[in-house]
Design a protein around this nucleic acid. Structure first.
Lengths: 239, 239
DNA sequence: AAAGCAATTTTTGCATGCAAATTTGGGCGC
DNA sequence: GCGCCCAAATTTGCATGCAAAAATTGCTTT
C-alpha cells in the first residue's frame, strides 16, 4: 500500500469552509476564495497523487456552484498543481522523479537570483533577521530536531527571496515551492547525518557570503546548495 | 479606431471554429483555444495598456460564450497579463518601470540558470545551431539590420533555454518573456550604437563560455547581459 | 451651465440547464 | 469464469439565466 495516501479518494472534505467566511465583509470573490483554499489543500498534501478531483463533491463541500470551482481548477492547472484531462476531469498532478529534478533546479535558479539581488538591496535589519534564524536553526541541528530545523530552513530561504525585493520573482518562487512542497520527507535520519552536517556547513557559507554582500558567490552557493538538496531529496531527506 | 477585432464576428457560433479543429486528434477545448488566442493577442501588443477587455464583445469575436472566456481571463490574470478588478472587469495589465525592472532581473535569473544547465547537457548539434545563429546575427549587426538582429537574438536566448532541457524552466521563461514582449522598442538607433556593439561583445563571451561548457561563468555572463539589456531597454533599445 | 441625483441600461459574478462524452453495470456468448 | 457489447447513469463542457453591482443617462436644482 502506498503511504503517500493521506485521504482516501472518497474521503469527506467536509467543513473545510467555516460558514462565516462566506458572509464576512472582506468580500473576496468566490473564485479567489475557492482558488486559494483548494490550492492550500492540495499543496499541503491532503489529496493523494493522481486523486480524482470530483467537481460536484467539491462544490457541495465549498458551498459554491461549478462555475467558480472550474475557474479555480483552470488556474491550478496553469500552476502545475492539477492535471486537466479533456472530458475526464481534474486530477492532482503526479510528479515523477524527473519533474522533481527539474523543479529543484528551477528553485535553485530562483534562489540563486534571489541571493544575488538580496546582496544589492538587503538592509542590516533584514540581514540580522536571517542571521538570527540561522543561529536558531543551528540550535535545532544540535538538538537533532528535524522538524523545527526544517521550518527554520524554509524560513531562511523565504527571507532571502523576500530580501531580493522582486515581486515577480517572489510569485514564481511561491509557485515552484508549492509544487515541491507536496513531496513528503522521511523522518528517519539513518545514513543521512552526513548530508545534514554538510547542509549546515553550506548554510554557514551562504550566510557568510550574504554578510559580505558577495552576490555572484552567494548565487553560486545557493544553486549548488539546492542541487545537493535535490540529491538528498531522492534519499528522502531534505535539509 | 477600435480595431480590437480578432475574428470576424459571426452570428453562427457553430460555424466559427474551423471544422478541422473539432475532428482533429489534437482537439483542444474551447477554453484552451480562447486562452492561447487571447494570450497571443495580448502578448503581441494588439491591445493597449490598461485597455478594458469587454467580455461580451470578445465572446462574439471568438464565437464562444462567457464561460470559457472568463476561465481564460482568470488564467491570464494568474500569468500577470491581465488585471481583474472586482465587479469591474478585466484590463490589460499596465506594467510600470518598476515591474519591467523586476521582470528583466527575473528573466536574467532564468537565463542564468538555463546557461548553467545547458552546459551540463547540451549536445554538439545544439551548440552548432546556436553558433550558426550567432554568426547570422553578427551579419545582421554588420548590416545594421536591427529587426533581423533582434529576431536572431531572441532565438539564441530561446535555444539556450531549450538546451537546458528543463520543462518547468521553459514554461516560466515563456511566461516572463510574454510579459516583457509587450514592451515596444525604438527603431531609432541614434546614440545606441555603443550599446549595440557592447551587446555583440557580450554575446561573443556568452558563446565562448558555452563552447567551453563553463556553466558558472556562463550563468554570470547571462545575468549581467540581461542587466545591461534592462538598462538599455529604458532607453528604448534592446539587443 | 455645472453639480448633484435618480432612473435606466449595461456589465459582472455566479447558478443552473442541457447536450455530448465518459463511465458503469449488466447480459450474453464462449 | 472472462471478455465483449450496449443501455443507463454520471460527469463534463459550455451556454444561458438571473440578481446584484457598476456605468450611463437624463433630469433637476442652483
Amino acid at each position: 500500500m502506498s503511504d503517500t495516501k493521506i485521504l482516501p479518494a472518497t474521503a469527506e472534505i467536509t467543513a473545510i469552509i467555516p460558514p462565516e467566511t462566506r458572509h464576512e465583509p472582506g468580500k473576496t470573490s468566490l473564485h479567489d476564495e475557492v482558488l486559494s483554499r483548494l490550492r492550500d489543500y492540495i499543496v499541503e498534501g491532503n489529496l493523494s497523487d493522481g486523486a480524482r478531483i470530483p467537481e460536484r463533491e467539491l462544490c457541495t463541500q465549498f458551498g459554491v456552484s461549478r462555475t467558480p470551482l472550474r475557474e479555480a481548477l483552470k488556474v491550478l492547472a496553469s500552476e502545475g498543481l492539477v492535471d486537466l484531462l479533456p472530458n475526464r476531469g481534474a486530477r492532482v498532478r503526479t510528479l515523477r522523479d524527473e519533474d522533481y529534478r527539474e523543479l529543484f533546479d528551477l528553485m535553485g535558479g530562483l534562489e540563486a537570483l534571489a541571493g544575488r539581488l538580496a546582496c544589492e538591496s538587503i538592509s542590516a535589519a533584514q540581514y540580522a533577521e536571517i542571521e538570527a534564524l540561522h543561529h536558531q536553526m543551528y540550535g535545532f541541528y544540535l538538538r537533532r530536531d528535524l522538524h523545527e530545523y526544517f521550518r527554520c530552513n524554509q524560513e531562511i530561504h523565504q527571507k532571502i527571496v523576500d530580501a531580493a525585493g522582486n515581486r515577480a520573482l517572489a510569485a514564481m518562487y511561491a509557485t515552484v515551492a508549492g509544487q515541491i512542497r507536496r513531496l513528503r520527507y522521511a523522518a528517519n535520519l539513518d545514513g543521512k547525518r552526513d548530508r545534514w552536517a554538510e547542509a549546515v556547513r553550506e548554510h554557514e557559507a551562504i550566510l557568510d557570503a550574504l554578510r559580505r554582500r558577495a552576490g555572484a558567490e552567494l548565487s553560486d552557493l545557493l544553486f549548488k546548495h539546492l542541487r545537493n538538496k535535490r540529491s538528498a531529496a531522492r534519499e528522502g531527506f531534505v535539509d
